[in-house]
Design a protein around this nucleic acid. Structure first.
Length: 284
DNA sequence: TGGCAGGGTCATA
DNA sequence: TATGACCCTGCC
């Protein structure tokens, strides 16, 4: 049972099972949180947030319970019973192992626009560079935020990116991805492309719609659907997943549908397990 | 110092 | 359906 308690400036969310912040922020779904003392600090939903776990309590620093209720319960997917989700995959021995390894993974509910940009940046890049591109973009056109004496930058709106102009993105060093991001920003800002309407579509149609954006292919679209729209039936397959599937299942008889409506969450367990254990790299 | 791969996608054939 | 090119960085 989830309970919220205000302790001085902080909101304590009690009774959060299967919640490991390291796993959550290292499993490749979010790129703006960094370890900071006992917890993590990052920019999300328009503010700087310090978050930590105390036992089974999720502690949000400098946050009212009202704000937590409104914004952060959905963001951390707090009210979903992950034990119940995991029980869907129990009969698969490979998944069993991957789930044991990444018990504390939860899928964050992040803004669709932020996911569009983040996963456009992700193509042919490693995680440190994805982080640096996201931070670079925020520094160029995001609003400055201050917290505990340090400066941070909010994730820019489509309008802010569009207004900044393509040339202004040069310092981000995003290479051929910069025009993709700029084009998406212009189309969303002008209303020509509606990210809200995508939310109304069934997953297959939503995927096709997202792929109308330049630079968005199947993999990036699936990441946007999974992380930005909470479509747990989206199953992004990148080179790591290909390797993991090859090593763990043998390529032939693998179908994401076998995991049912939560296959996207299954994908996160497999992905994290494969990455952390270097599965599929030469010699493994 | 040069070569290559890194959470893909697009344009060609 | 299959290749190469694309921007940029960090590693060997």
């Amino acid at each position: 049972m989830i309970e919220l308690e205000q302790r001085k400036e902080d909101c304590w969310i009690h009774g959060v099972q299967r919640c490991d912040l390291k796993q959550i922020f290292d499993c490749g779904q979010a790129f703006r949180f960094v370890q900071d003392g006992e917890g993590y600090t990052g920019v999300a939903l328009g503010r700087v947030l310090h978050v930590s776990m105390q036992g089974t309590s999720l502690v949000l620093a400098d946050t009212t319970c009202e704000e937590a209720q409104q914004k952060w319960l959905p963001y951390f997917d707090v009210e979903r019973d992950y034990a119940a989700v995991q029980s869907h995959f129990r009969d698969d021995p490979v998944m069993q192992q991957a789930m044991d390894f990444g018990q504390g993974i939860r899928l964050l509910c992040q803004p669709a626009w932020e996911m569009v940009v983040t996963f456009l940046f992700s193509q042919r890049n490693n995680i440190p560079r994805i982080r640096s591109l996201v931070e670079g973009l925020c520094a160029v056109c995001g609003q400055k935020l201050s917290y505990r004496g340090k400066d941070y930058f909010d994730f820019p709106t489509p309008g802010q990116v569009a207004q900044a102009g393509l040339d202004a993105l040069a310092p981000v060093r995003a290479g051929y991805r910069a025009p993709y991001v700029y084009d998406a920003a212009c189309r969303v800002a002008s209303g020509e492309f509606s990210l809200e309407k995508v939310a109304q579509l069934p997953t297959n149609e939503a995927r096709q719609k997202l792929m109308e954006l330049k630079g968005v292919g199947v993999k990036v679209a699936d990441c946007i659907l999974l992380f930005g729209y909470g479509r747990f039936d989206a199953f992004p397959v990148d080179v790591w997943m290909e390797r993991a599937i090859r090593v763990l299942y043998g390529k032939q008889d693998f179908h994401p549908e076998q995991f049912g409506p939560y296959c996207g969450i299954a994908q996160q367990y497999l992905f994290y397990y494969a990455r952390q254990n270097g599965l599929g790299k030469a010699g493994t």
